[in-house]
Amino acid sequence: MPDLIANPAVASTRPSCGTAGGVFAALDLGTNNCRLLVATPTPAGSFRVLDSYSRVVRLGEGLAQQGRLSEGAMERALAALQACAQKLLRRPLRRLLAVTTEACRQAANGAAFVARARETTGLPIRVISAREEAELAMESCAPLLRAQDRRALLFDIGGGSTEIAWIRGAPNGLPELIGYVSLPIGVVTLAERAGLCCYTPEGFDRVVVEVAAELARFDRVHCIGQEMRAGGVRLMGTSGTVTTLAGVALSLPRYSRPLIDGRVLDIQEADQALRDLFMLGRDGLREHPCVGPERADYVLPGCAIYAAIRRIWPSSCVTVADRGLREGMLLRMMRQERLPSRRVAAQAHPFRPAAYPAS
């Protein structure tokens, strides 16, 4: 990718904000993927998607071994971010949030890369904390909670980390995050560190035991297992791992978000789907319509993390959420726009890339 920092034309490619009645955009640069959603609010308090983008960039490739983002990984991410910036140029933006997560939190050169990305693309990308990542996942999944849910345990199995959010239900308002843990273990880090070990029963179980030990410490602090045995706790998962399990459990000929998002799987169905995926092996995973060659190496590491969650917190069912940080960012921005103080501020101060609110 050409170096756009020295290109005087870069100023003309920077997306601008401030158009009244414009659209909202959320960009999530993760350890494995770069994703964008562009949407407009609906009267019901949700949103209608106008445009989307997703590309596998493998930003965290080699991070576990080197402690740094590689030049190749950064170039792939910058190319994807530039594609997102070009898409946003065609839209009358009202607000934009652009975030990056665990790879840039961990990498020694993460902050330098974010500065380079901001300068190169004009996108106001920033590194968010593990807590904010958990809060955004909670906000995106809140519409799937029901009035009878006293608590919810939400897991998000990412590329570079796994977030667990312990949530207090709120039938008449936003749920409350009452505890969270971020494990520096994700599908990319496991795939690189463990190699092909997850393809054998012994290797798979070693990963389950390791992750379960980390989760058990969190459980002892919040007594989650005890709360689950008392009832009224919803187990909910958001990530490619749990949506893949749902696709396999439903025997879908190809992945379909409308059939997956919000689906409540009986735990035996989910467990059988895990066994089916494990039996496929690497070649079978590459050919499966709900997996494919780009994700084949990451499915079983994700399943091992899921199996650890199941071991520590047994549940009769799991709610599958095909939504995440982008949806959480969109809902947060739109909710803030409905506040009277936010509307006054929006009228008084035109949006500028450097002035996007942090939360």
Rank of each mutant, 00 (worst) to 15 (best):
S182C: 12
N33V: 05
V127Y: 07
A130R: 03
I185K: 02
C197P: 03
L96N: 01
L280R: 11
P41I: 06
L89H: 02
T162M: 01
L81V: 03
G158C: 01
A11M: 12
G328I: 02
P184E: 00
E61K: 09
R146P: 01
W166P: 02
P353E: 11
G173Q: 02
I178H: 07
T162K: 01
L63H: 04
E71I: 04
D205K: 06
D261H: 15
G231L: 14
C198N: 01
L330I: 08
R168Y: 01
P184C: 04
A348S: 10
L145C: 07
E119Y: 02
K87Y: 02
L183P: 02
C198D: 11
V114Y: 07
A270V: 04
V57E: 00
I128F: 08
Q66I: 00
P353Q: 12
L153R: 00
P289R: 05
E210F: 13
R91D: 00
A26D: 08
A9F: 10
M1W: 11
C290P: 06
S129A: 06
A249M: 00
G281M: 07
A358E: 14
F24H: 14
P43L: 12
A321Q: 08
Y180W: 13
M329L: 15
R217W: 11
A73D: 00
A212D: 06
L300F: 07
G158P: 02
A111P: 01
C317D: 14
L339E: 15
R311V: 05
A77Y: 03
V211L: 05
L97Y: 02
S12N: 13
H288C: 04
R326A: 11
G179C: 04
S54W: 02
A354S: 13
G30P: 03
A134E: 05
I167Y: 02
F218L: 12
V248S: 02
S182P: 07
D276C: 08
A321V: 11
R151T: 09
R229V: 14
R338T: 10
T319Q: 14
A348K: 07
R14T: 09
A107E: 09
G179T: 05
R254C: 12
A39L: 13
I267V: 14
R58Y: 08
R310K: 13
H288E: 04
V99S: 06
A20R: 14
C290W: 01
A346S: 11
E71D: 10
E139N: 13
G231I: 13
L274I: 08
S256T: 07
E192V: 07
M1F: 13
L245V: 15
W166I: 00
S129Y: 03
K87E: 10
L265P: 04
R275W: 08
T241M: 10
W166L: 08
T100F: 10
V344I: 15
L252D: 07
E132L: 15
I312G: 08
D3I: 10
L29C: 14
W166Y: 14
E294Y: 08
R343I: 07
S315F: 04
P201A: 13
A85K: 05
T31L: 10
G292P: 11
T100V: 09
A80Y: 07
L93K: 10
C303E: 01
R95I: 03
L265N: 06
